[in-house]
Design a protein around this nucleic acid. Structure first.
Length: 275
DNA sequence: AGGGGAACCCGTACGC
DNA sequence: TGCGTACGGGTTCCCC
């Protein structure tokens, strides 16, 4: 389940690997991952295009093309982008849904075991509209405490749910919402608009710190996540709350509680130091 | 507006 | 051993 740090890791690795590569062909083996395009249309629009760069927006990997179009990959749970220079094992290619072949002989696989992930091809206008609907990037300088407070004040929903809503804040999912709320000492179920200014400031700090540290660690490998080299991230060793229900809170030693009460998603928090 | 539920998909875990 | 079924998980969409 790649969130912001995992997606950032993939996008950076991919940028090093395939920026400048020119597409020579496209193979679609599972068309159901495609959005806003078809296999035939994809081939027409991608062949001869050069990949300008690979970057991240929210939990999306965006490949900018020389045609001014954008290939937008949303890996969801099991999606992965793997660069094959000829050494990729057959088992790794088994779940390829889409492959871009490059003039230099390499292949970029979009592999997705459960195929809930998506790949869309968007023109510049469509891409602009699409990204305009996504909330601010937490690591952007414009994501100030005031900006976060404005977002939170607009909703009476649980603060954790608001953090995870991509229209409100970009790139934050269950792991990093859980961790940042633990660090900020805020109960995940508390109404967003009841988060005070000082708390919003602490929450902003916690989000930025947690996400930055996780990028440094190349992400958290829970279940299937692997980076573009097939490697795991190491931030899992630093999680204080996520996945630790029943274990002692690292801050106050109280027993961490796991609940599905917020948005039907597993939430772990410390009932003593998160209020 | 906000809440609930379904759909998307298939490996994994489990029951028999 | 094998077959059948429930489950999870982020996002979107639909309905109340």
């Amino acid at each position: 389940m790649p969130e912001l740090p995992e997606t950032e890791t993939i996008a950076r690795d991919l940028d090093r690997a395939v920026a400048g590569a020119v597409v020579s062909g496209v193979t679609v083996t599972h068309a159901d991952v495609l959005r806003e395009t078809t296999p035939a249309d994809l081939a027409v629009r991608l062949v001869a295009a050069r990949i300008r760069r690979s970057w991240r927006r929210a939990k999306l990997i965006v490949l900018d093309l020389s045609t001014a179009e954008h290939l937008v990959v949303q890996p969801r749970f099991t999606g992965a982008l793997l660069v094959d220079s000829g050494a990729l094992a057959l088992a790794e290619r088994r779940y390829t849904a889409l492959a871009l072949h490059f003039v230099d002989g390499r292949t970029l696989h979009y592999r997705d075991i459960r195929r809930l992930g998506t790949v869309a091809l968007m023109g510049p206008d469509r891409f602009a509209t699409y990204t305009a609907g996504i909330g601010p990037e937490p690591l952007d300088p414009t994501f100030t405490a005031d900006a976060l407070r404005t977002v939170l004040s607009r909703s009476g929903q649980a603060v954790k749910k608001v953090l995870m809503n991509q229209r409100q804040v970009a790139g934050v999912g269950n792991i990093y919402a859980t961790e940042s709320l633990w660090r900020a000492g805020i109960d995940p179920s508390r109404s967003a608009r009841r988060v005070a200014a000082a708390e919003a400031q602490a929450l902003r700090r916690a989000l930025i710190d947690v996400l930055s540290e996780a990028i440094e660690a190349r992400g958290t490998s829970f279940r299937d996540y692997r980076d573009a080299h097939g490697e795991r991230g190491s931030f899992g060793d630093h999680l204080a709350a996520y996945g630790r229900a029943g274990l002692p809170c690292p801050r106050c030693q109280s027993r961490l509680v796991g609940t599905h009460a917020v948005d039907g998603r597993m939430t772990v928090f410390c009932p003593r130091c998160q209020r």
